[in-house]
């Protein structure tokens, strides 16, 4: 518990490290913070092109919101996913890339992955706000759900940073981790119903067997994506089982990450 106290006592450092990440990222770029919106827009264009025009897939309209359109339907799940991958990738390299700092000054090292999480959350909030405005222009009403959305944003942040902290320690021992994770995340995205709907898998499971779907739905990101789509696209509260699954996954993974990191952080300076 003393480590928690120490983290709390140095929370201003976390704030400053976060500002460093946010401000440093887009310095000297002409478009500045706009880049954080251009990137998801580009992804949206690519997938929309493929799914809407080549595969002729139209998602069902939001229930009860009545919103229609593949780009909107896609972005409701894509933005949480990109947040997740950015936190995992950034957090896992945060220790190695700040080796110089770790070897020269003492501070609770956990602030490094936490700052990545916080700064990515700033960008994410911005992206979600823009998405919410666009959704409203198309007739959805996500505003009453904002408190619930924030709760699930926090849960996804815990889940992502917990995973990032475990991987960050592993990356200190084996630098393979960062390359390996890149591949795993790419596969993971296609194993999550982000660009295609869960119905595709359900239909296939009817032919092959129920176990396919059960296995597929073990993935916590599948639940998170479903929850965010419920809240933003459909404008309804998520299902209980999905919510509890997200909560449990977030708490377990964060706790594991926290324990892994806090037990190993004393030796980081000599391992780097």
């Amino acid at each position: 518990m003393s480590y928690v106290k120490e983290l709390a006592a140095t929370r201003e450092l976390l704030a400053n490290l976060t500002i460093r990440e946010v401000k440093g990222q887009y310095r000297r770029t002409f478009l500045g913070q706009l880049w954080s919106l251009i990137n998801p827009l580009a992804t949206m264009l690519v997938y929309t092109l493929v799914f809407l025009f080549l595969l002729r897939f139209e998602p069902p309209p939001g229930d009860p919101s009545g919103v229609e359109g593949y780009p909107l339907w896609l972005m409701c799940a894509m933005l949480p996913w990109t947040f997740f991958t950015r936190v995992v990738n950034g957090g896992l390299t945060s220790v190695v890339s700040n080796a110089n700092l770790i070897k020269k000054v003492y501070f609770p090292r956990m602030h490094l992955p936490l700052a990545v999480m916080a700064s990515t959350a700033v960008t994410w909030s911005l992206e979600l706000s823009v998405l919410a405005i666009v959704l409203m222009l198309f007739g959805a009403m996500p505003i009453p759900f904002i408190p619930v959305i924030i709760v699930f944003m926090a849960l996804l942040a815990l889940f992502a940073v917990g995973l990032a902290m475990m991987l960050a320690i592993l990356n200190v021992h084996f630098r393979d981790t960062q390359h390996f994770t890149g591949i795993v995340l790419q596969m993971w995205m296609f194993l999550t119903p982000i660009i295609y709907p869960l119905e595709f898998v359900e239909r296939r499971a009817e032919q092959v067997g129920q176990w396919v779907l059960d296995l597929y739905r073990l993935n916590p990101m599948e639940r998170f994506v479903a929850v965010f789509r419920n809240l933003l696209y459909d404008n309804r509260l998520p299902a209980w089982d999905d919510s509890i699954y997200c909560l449990a996954a977030a708490l377990i993974v964060f706790l594991l990450g926290y324990l892994t990191f806090s037990r190993n952080e004393k030796r980081l300076a000599e391992l780097l």
Partner: peptide, 13 residues
């Protein structure tokens, strides 16, 4: 501790 001056400076800030 002051083991190296300016460690932790961010060049763009």
């Amino acid at each position: 501790s002051l083991l190296e001056v300016g460690s932790g400076f961010h060049p763009e800030l």
